[in-house]
Write a protein that binds this DNA or RNA. Structure first.
Lengths: 187, 187
DNA sequence: TTCAATTGCGAGCTATCGCTCATATTATTC
DNA sequence: GAATAATATGAGCGATAGCTCGCAATTGAA
């Protein structure tokens, strides 16, 4: 799978797993189910890292909380960068709106809950929109680092720089008041 | 192509284009070349929008400049959201480090050049890192809106809210001084 | 009008895909 | 050890992929 989706035929998967195609189809109804299992496992691994971080930030300041979450996002992406890349870039979607990586969607819920707790400390009005902005940015920065700048996550100094910048980006955004414009804008 | 990559066989492409498979292969050496042509055209369309925006921001303030670029990013993603989705999510990569969408990489260069001009107005030390953070965030917010929140780009009010938030995110980041940590951290 | 040259055509080739099923192997029960 | 159940195997099936090539249609020059 790590060699790309196109070269992952069921026969090759079976061979790589050390079993025969027949045995494979005794445990999985089809290729889609195989892929789904891989995705599910990866999503579980990612969320485990994030949830562990969330558990730590109960009473933390905004600064510490953001830094913890950014560090968690980096750690999550470092679990299996190659697999993450293939899943994010090459995995076919079902025709419907099914997502491959639920990570951002789930993380947004957790993040929104935190924002809710601290509503009055924060300038933002629309918590949904704020959660979307924060989680999307954090995910994108770490994801993009994994995909386009792998060296950034190998070198510990570079990792620290990235975490610092992302933290600065998000804390600044959360601390600042919303613009003068109309308050009602949530979807 | 807009129906997903998997269902885009050369025979179907030819039929959809109103020509025969044979004619198709007189103009393109193979399927890869076909895909490459589509990607190239899409990238050109995207960069055209971005470059038009860049041309406007020559003497603009940071606030105006960021807002212009964010609006341009949104406009670019609205050109052909469905195609953009398929290219970003489903298009197989060559084994090497080839990217499908060059948009972010190219935009980072343009953005970095602007930052260079205004170096002393800005707090950031590492311009490469700052350009990476800004462009990645802007691209992710608009991209994510296209993919996961299509309503956000249909409703003009929601678009304005998104542009406003993204602008606030980036301007805040660029204005703030870097943390106390070591200045040398560029990759 | 005739003859090349160019361009368009699509049935069909080979390769590979996801998947099945008759058979071989192993485990369990008595 | 014999009988039965459960699991593993991989040659091979139909479907479909990317692509070729002999031929038809069209164009342009003489």
């Amino acid at each position: 799978m790590r060699d790309g989706f196109e070269r992952a035929s069921t026969n090759r998967i079976a061979a790589a797993a050390g079993v025969s195609v027949g045995s494979l189809y005794q445990y999985f109804p089809g290729k889609e189910a195989l892929v789904a299992a891989v995705i599910e496992r990866h999503n579980r691994d990612l969320m485990q890292v994030v949830q562990a971080a969330v558990a730590q930030i109960a009473g933390a300041s905004v600064e510490v909380m953001v830094r913890t979450l950014v560090a968690a996002a980096v750690a999550a992406h470092r679990l299996d960068p190659q697999l993450h890349r293939v899943l994010a870039e090459q995995t076919p979607r079902a025709g419907d709106g099914t997502e491959v990586l639920f990570f951002p969607r789930e993380a947004q819920g957790l993040f929104r809950a935190y924002l809710e707790e601290r509503r009055d400390e924060l300038g933002a009005f629309d918590l949904d929109l704020a959660a979307f902005v924060c989680v999307t940015s954090i995910e994108a920065l770490t994801h993009s680092a994994v995909i386009h700048r792998p060296a950034m996550l190998t070198d510990e100094v570079a990792v620290e720089a990235l975490v610092g910048e992302a933290t600065r980006l998000i804390t600044g955004y959360l601390r600042a008041s919303p613009p003068s414009a109309a308050p009602g804008s949530a979807p």
